[in-house]
Design a protein around this nucleic acid. Structure first.
Length: 810
RNA sequence: GGUCCAGUGGUGGAAUUGGUAUACACGCAGCACUUAAAAUGCUGUGCCGACAGGCAUGUGGGUUCGAGUCCCACCUGGACCACCA
């Protein structure tokens, strides 16, 4: 009987004792670096969905190991950040204690799945020996002006009591706790990711191994748009307002200008604004709105004219009114737009409400009277009412108008990005301290590199203060230091880094986890980089995966790494949902615990099941019955060897074995693990049938060993056990992956499909290399075909060698 | 509103990428074993039809000797972004 409990325990202990999964270092072998996105060890432990990606990469890692690669397959813990800290606060534990306990749980849960990690390279982002280098990288950025202090209003989560980056929001709410965020001006550290926006975008073209949807999400997030920045002089003043537009071709249709309420010119021109009380009350109303209310698309647009002010359109010299309205965002472009209601739906909606003129300047060739779209036409067309530019097509007009603008020094060509600089400080305890010191004399001074890491101090109360200060600010003997530059009284920076800091470079540390001299040894980096295959959740597309590419490119620029992209191939894992089709969560009571499943059915059955559920990238609902099915499959495989039977070689099954070698190898390479499993099931079914019918075993021990090798990446414990029972002294994972024999994979006879007018009418068993003439002759001699040909004429034959013959009749 | 995916039996899904649609698994039904149940094994299982055969891959068109696969329009569901000028 298949006793998974003792088999799995036995081999997990043996593998550990033999250090079987230590990273290979044979210089004669090629390298393969396969990586999972490391988890943050939450208090809830793993549910069955988490290991899906880990199992899949484990299968690839084991295949590569058997194929003779030096495989780097590490695991670690992304343990800083809000989830760990909130969990600790809730359970009244120190975050460090909670994190350690959670890591122990995770590690045990991963352990019982039989994953082939090299635990000698385990890393933990909260380990000072690790975050020393996170701090070091931050300092390099600071030295090059890529980390800077800012006082701009940022997203503030009132519940988590910290500032957040744009990437940390979901629908204007805090991604962690769901509270509506507020805009709050505060001192913060910001990383200038916008300096890298263009490279982050264009280099996506150099990543053919990434899935297109993920790349598309990054493109959208970066949001490059090309246009022009144009100066509108403000009438009777020496001031001007700059607007950004991608549609300069519509500028002759501009009938007003809109400023964001926060635009500095509003306050600057207060004296000239004749309806200031109305303006002031509008500003107050806007200030009271949450971000969510302000960006609600369903709400009606509001605004107020700045009476007494007008802007001059540089193209036609016409004066147009100026409004403020909160549909214009201060944070994008110049915070001001030229409004063209005839060709922009937002402007159109606003213009109708406030009775602004609608002036057409681009004609739709298909609709010259502009009757469609209720008077608003947003696509490209041919310019009309546009002075010397009339008659040009939109694209050509944009080029000429920008040239004219630059020549007249009234504006410039401009590229804007949606991506914003990365708000990098958090007013929380559980993160890497930012290694800077504030000195009254010298300003901001870096902690000298030889004094890194700046260790997170032990603290009595680590709960957030809500004052915009981190809890660290209250620890006087940590905060007060001597200035490294002048020796005077100074204070440490008390903000900490966000969750995403440590994960920006961890994949480099696995290459050289214990190095105390540099973040990663150059030679080791040159050997292992880049990551050959990276697997994780799609939710990281616009956060971790953009941040990490940004940091990696920076490290490339300062010569710390030899290649400018970290991950050459990327796949996202589809979620495993509950049996009810909902996301697994305590709230729905639909969480399936892997420990229980492993105990009941075995880690191997769970591994095979999770791969068999469907295409890897696709979400799938859990179904314990399916797990019972893969368990039965393993039982059948185990039974094959249960009692000795005479060997009677069988050519058909030998051929099937070699086809399976080919299919399993190809399927793992293409990450189609569900069909690899089904190929193994077919083989086991055939072997079982043969055994029952013939009371014999069609394979010698060598062939059965090959079958075990094919099964081994999926069900390592059982395969290893049967391998041993077969009398093999070494681990199955030290054996070489089998090659298939091309002669055995080829069929001598095939089923030739005979169709008439494309409809299947017969299948005939024929030699694989049958000629067209022979096939036609054979078809004509077949009764089932003759019936259809009677009284008709064959006007054409289509022959696909080895596959089908189609007769076209009339 | 924008961008990108996906619609195949009762269910999860397969289809060598334009060539036997429904592999494999679950579920269900029947039979065997059993005093009985569980477990196991065997058989059947897209729909209509007694058979011949016909009809089926969200809907409607098209291309082709041949379409789940390619093209056009639509419907439905999902993911991400969202007043980005």
């Amino acid at each position: 009987m298949y006793d998974h409990r003792s088999i799995e325990r036995k081999w997990q202990e043996n593998w550990r004792a033999a250090n079987l999964y230590r990273t290979g270092a044979d210089p004669a072998k090629p390298k393969y670096y396969i990586l999972d996105m490391f988890p943050y060890p939450s208090g809830a432990g793993l549910h069955v969905g988490h290991p899906k990606g880990y199992i899949a990469t484990d299968i690839v890692a084991r295949l590569r190991l058997m194929q003779g690669y030096n495989v780097l397959h590490p695991m670690g813990w992304d343990a800083f950040g809000l989830p760990a800290e909130n969990y600790a606060i809730k359970n009244k534990l120190h975050p460090r204690v909670a994190t350690e306990a959670n890591i122990a749980t995770f590690k045990r849960q991963l352990g019982i799945l039989g994953l082939s990690y090299d635990w000698e390279r385990e890393i933990n982002t909260t380990d000072p020996r690790y975050y020393k280098w996170t701090q070091w990288i931050f300092l390099q950025m600071w030295k090059r002006g890529l980390a800077f202090e800012s006082y701009e209003p940022i997203n503030w989560c009132p519940s988590c009591q910290t500032g957040l980056a744009n990437e940390d929001l979901e629908d204007g709410k805090c991604e962690r706790c769901g509270s509506a965020v507020e805009q709050r001006p505060m001192r913060q550290w910001v990383l200038k990711i916008t300096d890298y926006a263009d490279r982050l975008l264009t280099d996506l073209e150099r990543l053919p191994g990434w899935e297109e949807p993920i790349k598309e999400m990054q493109r959208n997030w970066i949001g490059r748009s090309e246009g022009a920045e144009i100066e509108f002089k403000i009438q009777d003043t020496d001031q001007a307002v700059k607007v950004f537009t991608t549609r300069i071709d519509t500028i002759f249709g501009c009938t007003y200008v809109v400023l964001a309420p926060e635009h500095p010119l509003v306050a600057g021109l207060q004296a000239r604004i004749k309806n200031w009380p109305a303006v002031e009350s509008y500003l107050a109303a806007v200030k009271n709105k949450t971000d969510l209310q302000r960006t609600d698309l369903n709400k009606e647009k509001t605004g107020v004219a700045l009476a007494g002010l007008a802007a001059i359109n540089p193209f036609n010299g016409k004066a147009v009114p100026i409004f403020i309205a909160d549909y214009v965002l201060n944070s994008y472009g110049t915070g001001a737009v030229m409004a063209v209601p005839a060709h922009d739906e937002r402007d159109f909606e606003f213009a109708e409400k406030y009775d602004c003129p609608i002036r057409k300047s681009v004609a739709d060739p298909a609709d010259p009277d502009n009757k469609v779209f209720g008077g608003c036409y947003t696509a490209d067309g041919v310019l009309v009412n546009s002075g010397e530019f009339s008659g040009l097509a939109s694209a050509a007009a944009r080029r000429k108008m920008i040239a004219w603008l630059e020549q007249s020094r009234l504006g410039v060509k401009r590229v804007n990005y949606k991506i914003k600089d990365w708000v990098y400080s958090r007013q929380r305890y559980w993160g890497e301290p930012i290694p800077l010191i504030h000195c009254a004399n010298c300003g901001v001074v870096p902690v000298p590199e030889d004094e890194l890491p700046v260790v997170l101090p032990e603290v009595e109360s680590y709960e957030p203060t809500g004052t915009g200060e981190s809890p660290l600010a209250a620890i006087a003997d940590w905060v007060n230091v001597k200035c490294p530059a002048c020796g005077g009284e100074a204070k440490r920076e008390t903000n900490t880094m966000p969750q995403w800091g440590g994960s920006c470079w961890y994949y480099l540390r696995y290459m050289d986890p214990d190095n105390e001299r540099v973040l990663v040894d150059k030679q080791k980096e040159a050997y292992w980089s880049p990551v050959d295959f990276y697997v994780g959740g799609a939710e990281h597309a616009t956060r971790h995966l953009i941040y990490a590419r940004f940091w990696h490119k920076f490290l490339y620029d300062i010569g710390a790494v030899h290649y400018d992209e970290p991950f050459t191939k990327l796949k996202h894992v589809g979620l495993i949902m509950g049996e009810d089709g909902r996301k697994m969560s305590k709230r729905w009571g639909n969480v399936i615990n892997p420990d229980e499943m492993v105990d009941k059915f075995g880690a191997d059955a769970l591994r095979v099941y999770e791969m068999f559920m469907g295409p890897f990238e696709q979400a799938a609902n859990w179904n314990t019955n399916g797990l019972v099915g893969t368990r039965k499959f393993l039982e059948k495989a185990e039974q094959l060897l249960a009692k000795p039977l005479p060997v009677r070689p069988d050519k058909r099954l030998l051929s099937l074995l070699h086809k399976t070698i080919r299919k399993v190898g190809l399927d793992i390479d293409n990450f189609r693990l569900n069909t690899a499993v089904s190929a193994l099931m077919i083989l086991v079914n055939e072997l079982t049938d043969y055994k029952q019918a013939a009371q014999a075993w069609p394979f010698g021990s060598a062939e059965f060993a090959v079958f075990l090798q094919l099964l081994a990446p999926f069900a390592p414990h059982l395969s290893e056990e049967l391998w041993e029972r077969l009398g093999r002294p070494d681990s199955i994972f030290q054996s070489a992956w089998p090659a298939y024999d091309p002669a055995l994979v080829k069929d001598e006879n095939i089923n030739l499909v005979i169709s008439i007018n494309g409809k299947l009418r017969a299948t005939l068993v024929v030699p694989a290399d049958i000629s067209e003439a022979a096939a036609v002759k054979l078809a004509q001699d077949t009764a089932a075909i003759q019936k259809w040909l009677a009284g008709k004429q064959v006007i054409k034959t289509v022959f696909v060698p080895g596959k089908l013959l189609n007769l076209v009749i009339k």
